[in-house]
Nucleic acid binder design. Structure first.
Lengths: 131, 131
DNA sequence: ATAAATGCAAACCTTTTGCACCCTA
DNA sequence: TAGGGTGCAAAAGGTTTGCATTTAT
């Protein structure tokens, strides 16, 4: 159905090559431009949708309503640092026991969950300690 | 700082009197109009912000990017039914052990969390059983 | 009396769409 | 060479803002 396109691969590569960031549409658009890989905004929007549809990337909606993109579709939780606001993918095993526990309490089948932790990331913790 | 206003109380009452729904700005606006309590959209937006600022209500951002409002600020988890899409406030105790567990694994302090479960709600489960 | 709240319309931003042209398979 | 894909600009959608007027304290 979808064909390969140069622009789509630029976008995909850009996300993969910044694994520690979770970027918004605008950040991706501006970032590519800065690398002399300018793509029109419309194309960025269209391709981010297609990449999600192909399960090559995932997206995460922040409480602010800003959508950011994740390099992987593998289920995992997130940490949002309440100091620097950075978003981290957690290596902590995605915990199905949370779902099993809820099933027992609610008596309904649970298929998946979304967990975001808010706290201070290791970097910020270290910086605070140094003051 | 804030004064009492008729419109703000209408909005607050409207949210409180529909505890089983999590409504968007538009649904609140339309709902009030249907009760002959028309308030301008701008005022609905302004007051929903103020009500949150006063901690009288909370809001929840859905994956779709739609913001919906919650009658309570008490920390609690949510269930989103994957069949009817309704959102439920969970009575399940807000589980601090999730945070403690993450602290142990990540060695950083966790302040709070946001947990959304996806599954089939009791109503939909029953309807399915009846087929 | 004064500071906040309202309604209205204009302004804003972000996302989507229509269309002529271009590029994969 | 047919069916996606692209850029551009216009359109659409949702939210905010400026301002004159009204309302609460």
């Amino acid at each position: 159905m979808y064909k390969v396109s140069r622009q789509r691969e630029w976008i995909y590569d850009y996300i993969q090559s910044h694994p520690d960031r979770h970027m918004s549409v605008e950040e991706i658009y501006e970032g590519l431009k800065a690398e002399n890989r300018e793509v029109s905004v419309a194309t960025v929007y269209r391709n981010l949708k297609i990449l999600q549809d192909e399960n090559r990337i995932a997206s995460l909606m922040l409480e602010s309503g800003k959508q950011v993109f994740d390099k992987t579709c593998r289920p995992h939780d997130h940490l949002i640092c309440t100091t620097c606001q950075k978003i981290f993918d957690l290596d902590m095993p995605y915990d199905r026991s949370i779902e099993r526990k809820a099933e027992h309490q609610l008596h309904i089948p649970i298929e998946s969950h979304s967990l975001v932790l808010y706290g201070t990331c290791a970097d910020c913790l270290q910086k605070k300690g140094k003051v």
